[in-house]
Design a protein around this nucleic acid. Structure first.
Lengths: 221, 221
DNA sequence: GCAAAAGTGTTCCAGATACACCCATGT
DNA sequence: ACATGGGTGTATCTGGAACACTTTTGC
């Protein structure tokens, strides 16, 4: 045991709630291969390197699981109730990330672990206190819809207004009025028309939009 | 060195921004007695006990410095940039607390440390990254004024509406309109008249109010 | 021509803002 | 009587909410 201290030190980990939206709001879980909570689903995460920045640790986990870089990542809360991990005292800094569905490439089979997306409203039992972490992340995300342009972080480069509305609806779990939604988006000025259209069914083609300030989340209202 | 681990563990501390309001928004600082940053002002804080809940650690620091219990306390953010403490890797969970000025009894001379209140807008240079922590706490507090009843946590049991308005103004750093302020407070229903008055100068006595739900902070609007 | 999603305006209400004068007291 | 802070009401503006029909396409 080569690392010794005069006083006991807790272990510090990072857990990430990785959200995406396909038909519904989904998040990434990993089936645990070891005790405790063996075979139980859990958030991706891991121990922080001793010289590693907190955010870097979260980015590293995110990249390992999804292959994505440059997506929205925000620190959520720090969980550290004694006993939350039965092995030793573990303090976990929780983050959440928003990944556009076209950006990721799950490295599922690479290390024989089981990795899967679950709808937020149909989660299996989770290891540790991860249910609390997910609940807080979802709550924070919902709240931010009302005063920021965070929903755009889920969108691919080009998207229709109906798709953006579906993103809002699947996060909030409610239906929105189409005209009011579009009025608000227009007032914010956070999207602009590309001039292109998408035809994808037996109905009128939809205009394609793009973000005016990609990569930035503005606080509004 | 009796505490050994297979992998290196960071130290984990808690720092607290303890706010109060007298004439202005103030916070509590302690002059450091030891290196690093010897003689520099710093936030109160300390190492977490290995079996201690995170919030308990913050409450303990708060109680040690101010003698108060039962005041508003909220986790702020976790800071852990490598090198923020030159001695070893330290990850600090920052909190902020709101203390009504009549509730506290600083235990200043008890251990010969220098402890003092500073106006938020006139802070001395701070140790470590404490300037960033203070800035974030102040920003969070300001934001919460607009969608919660958090300001009441600064008030003594009985207070005038002008005093409550001064609390808002000193946090925001702006003047507010008296009539609009009172209309909003009345609409929230978060205070009620006691029927008493306070006379404290050569002017009309002010009505005294009290909280309708002491100890709770409601999210509003 | 019909099914399906895209697109578009107006009315109404609530809450925020701007703004100026009288009241009760101490000296 | 005057200085000081306490106390009050109205008009206006702005943003959110409710609400239904026409357009363009594929089949």
């Amino acid at each position: 045991m080569p690392y010794s201290y005069q006083y006991p030190h807790p272990a510090v980990t990072t857990d990430i709630v990785i959200f995406t939206i396909r038909q519904q709001l989904e998040l990434l879980l990993i089936r645990r291969a070891d005790e405790p909570f063996k075979d139980c689903w859990a958030l991706p995460g891991g121990f922080i390197d001793i010289d590693e920045d907190l955010e870097h640790c979260a980015l590293r986990e995110l990249e390992e699981e999804t292959g994505v870089t440059g997506v929205y990542l925000e620190q959520l809360y720090t969980f550290g109730t004694p006993g939350r991990d039965p092995r030793e005292r573990v303090i976990s800094i929780a983050w959440y990330a928003l990944v556009p569905p076209d950006r990721m490439h799950i490295r599922a089979a690479s290390d024989a672990r089981e990795v899967a997306w679950f709808e937020v409203r149909k989660l299996p039992p989770l290891a540790f206190d991860h249910k609390d972490i997910v609940a807080l992340a979802h709550q924070r995300l919902s709240a931010k819809l009302n005063y920021s342009t965070i929903a755009l972080q889920f969108m691919p480069e080009k998207f229709t207004l109906s798709e953006l509305q579906q993103v809002h609806e699947s996060i909030l779990g409610t239906k929105l009025d189409k005209r009011n939604f579009r009025k608000r988006v227009a007032a914010l000025g956070c999207v602009k028309e590309t001039g292109e259209h998408r035809r994808d069914g037996k109905h009128r083609p939809a205009r394609l939009f793009t973000m005016t300030s990609p990569g930035t989340v503005e606080i509004v209202k």
